[in-house]
Simulated scan of single mutants.
Amino acid sequence: MPTPREIVDFSEDPAPPGASPWVGPKATERIELGAADPSWPARFDAVADRVRDALGPRALELHHVGSTSVPGLDAKPIIDVDLIVADPSDEAAWLPPLEAAGFELRVREPWWQGHRMLRSGDPVTNLHVFGPESAEPWKHRVFRDHLRRDAGDRERYASAKRAAAEQANRRGETTMDYNLRKQEVIREIYDRAFRAAGLI
């Protein structure tokens, strides 16, 4: 488990020179935000069952994160899932079973907490793979739980998402670009969430 200091730290190791996180072509897609859908938790449950069936005990933890995990929050209709495995770098141990279950590796950035991201459809899912010592999944859960409790910050985040989506779509940017456009508001909300959780 990461320390509180690691959880609240936003410093990131840069990619090595010439390295790209993308597996295959750099992805661009239109950012389509929709109203909260009460079926999203059940869709997560279905995805979680697929992952557990594929990996068995190698799936140490599975968490529904991101905007579809927050009731009442506008979101892209994409289920974000954090999967914790013993060693993300040991892809032979977990990637082939997930590929057989219909997941496709899209992002590999071992320089950033060992992160990998896989995509699947029906429902459209981003499956983020981390190790037990990674701080990012803890950030995701603190942020999610804060937004579930705090209606004001939930609306601030929704407004930032709508503005970022409009700009990203107009410029034909990637989802990573869209995420960067939200970053200032996200960091402000994180600060309040960390303080509420006693992490700072």
Score class of each variant (00 low, 15 high):
R108L: 00
A163D: 12
G114M: 08
I31D: 07
M176C: 02
H128I: 00
D74W: 12
P17R: 02
E155K: 03
A93G: 13
E173S: 07
A158P: 07
R195M: 11
P132R: 08
Q167T: 06
S69I: 03
A86P: 14
Y157T: 05
G152I: 11
R106H: 09
P17L: 11
A197C: 15
A196H: 14
F10N: 01
H128R: 01
N126C: 04
V23H: 02
L147Y: 01
L60C: 04
G102Q: 04
Q167R: 14
N179S: 15
A93Y: 12
L33Y: 02
D80K: 00
R43T: 00
R187Q: 07
E109R: 02
R148F: 01
A27T: 15
M1S: 14
W22R: 09
E184H: 10
E12L: 13
K26S: 03
I186W: 02
T68A: 02
V124N: 07
R108F: 01
R119F: 09
P110N: 01
A193E: 14
P123E: 04
D9A: 01
A164I: 12
T175V: 13
R149S: 09
L180K: 05
D45L: 13
G198W: 05
L95N: 08
R192Q: 10
S89F: 06
E166I: 13
F44M: 07
V107T: 00
P41F: 05
V107D: 01
R156H: 03
A75R: 11
R116V: 03
Y178S: 08
P97F: 07
G24F: 13
D150K: 04
E61I: 04
A36F: 15
A36K: 09
P57Y: 08
W111V: 00
R58G: 06
L98R: 02
L62T: 02
G172D: 13
V85P: 06
M1C: 14
D150F: 06
R170I: 09
V8Y: 00
L83S: 09
P25G: 07
K182F: 12
R195Q: 15
P41C: 05
P132A: 12
P41D: 04
P71D: 04
M1P: 14
L73H: 02
